[in-house]
Structure formats: structure tokens, C-alpha cells
Design a protein around this nucleic acid. Sequence first.
DNA 1: CCCGGAACCTGAAGGC
DNA 2: TGCCTTCAGGTTCCGG
Length: 269
Amino acid sequence: MPELPEVETIKNELAPSVIGRRISAITLLWEKVVREPEVSKFRHHLIGQEIKDIGRRGKYLILSLDKTFLVIHLKMTGSLLIRPSNEVDKYTRAIIHLDSGKAIHFRDPRKFGAMWLVDDLSLLEEKLGPEPLEERFTPELLSERLLKHRAPIKAVLTDQSVIAGLGNMYADEALYAARIHPLRAASSLSLDEIRRLYKSIRQVLLAAIENKGASVNTYYRPGGEKGTAHFQFKVAHQGGKDCPTCGGKIERIKVRERGTYFCPSCQTL
DNA sequence: CCCGGAACCTGAAGGC
DNA sequence: TGCCTTCAGGTTCCGG
């Protein structure tokens, strides 16, 4: 599941193949992947534009074009692969053909992924909280944003309007590293706990980026390789295994309908 | 505002 | 072997 480290890796590895290239054609194998504008306009406005830059905001990938932006979200099972134009399989939903002869293939078994062609990024800025790896993200800012919410800290950490980029896996990893129980009310955290959480969030994300993201199921890098960050997971998807800190059993509970892994003896209520 | 739950999707896994 | 049910989770939307 692409979260911040996966999208960051995709951005970094896509960059050399796409920056400076011009879009020569668009193939849509599943039209609903386009959310905005309507399909004919989408295609018409994209063709001929140059990809000036590639960026990331939260879990969104942003291709900066001549005067518009192509925004892509991979949701659960999406991937973007650099391939020859004609290498299509049953999960290929869209192909962005480039003037280099190669193409960006949007592959997504679950069909949750989406693309938007927009004139500006105000929509993203309105709904996304701060970037956890930017300098403006400080323990004070985290504290200010968390203390407003009485919901379980796990749910608040995965709320993209509070902090951008954390999903199910990295929220669990960050809470474990900070020794905070996922069901603690966000507003109940002490300053010390928030400082630990701040450090943990950044460490967990940076380590995962170094490992090119986590391939727990269908995440692939643009060249088709998997990431290795999941080999470092202490609790995420480790239900029933031994806690590396205390040797107790990692448990799986549901928090707001989401599978949540934690160590009940290291992370107490 | 806060929260739970459904919808969007389909492959994988488990039960019988 | 095969049918059926459940589960996975990012985001949006609806209802209480």
C-alpha cells in the first residue's frame, strides 16, 4: 500500500525517465481512473504537454506540466511502471505514452487509484496537513494538531488533514517506536509522548525511504522491483510474532475498522 | 464537531 | 475441487 515512503520512492525513481519528456498519447483501459476533467478533455489537454517536474504531497504524486498538474493517487494497489508502450496486462488501467518511446503504465488490480488534471493544487492544500519530513513540521506543530482530537491516536495519525502521508503501516510502526498504545486518545498524550512520537514518525519514514518502500502486497517500484522496508517492520503485519523488545506476542486489533498491530506490553493504555 | 459505517473494487484466504 | 464468505484498506460520503 503506497504511503509516503512508497510514493516518495516512486517519485524519485520515475524522475529520470519522465522529466523533460513530452506526453505523446494517452491510452485509457479503464476510464473511471480519470476523475477530473471528463475523459475527452483529460486526454486532449494532456497530449503535447511537457513534464517539467515531479513532486509529492502526502500520498499524492504530482506531475507538473506546462501549465497544469497531473495529480495521481495510487490508493491501495496502484503502481506506476516505466515500460515499453505495448507491454499491457489485465491490470493496466492507463498508459501515458512519452516521446522517448517508453510509457508510464498505471497498473491497479483493485481499481481504487485515480488521476486528476488540475490548474492548481489548492484542492490538495485544503485537505492535507503538514508534511512530516519538512522543517516546518516540529514537535510543537504536532502537539498543536494532535491535542485537538479526542479520537484514538491511531485514527488521528492516519487522518491526512492532521498529518499528510502516514497510512496504516507506518502509523503502527511509529506508535510502537514511541511506546504509545494505538487506542490512547490523541488529546491525552503528554508532551514527552508527543516528542517521542515526533521522532518516531520521522525515523520510521526516513528508514522506509532508504529501503525504497515496503512491498507487503502489490507495491512495485517503477522498474518493477519491490521495496525492502517491510523487512524492518517491528509490528506492522507481524501479528502473532514476538515483540523484538520484550518477546511478548504482537497483537492485532481493529481501530476504526482498520487492522492495527501493536505490542500490548510495550504499548500500554 | 465527532464518530461509525458503507461504498468503491477484486484477489486471496478460510470455511465447509 | 469448488462454492461461498470474509478480509484487506485510502478516501469520500452519508447519517446519527
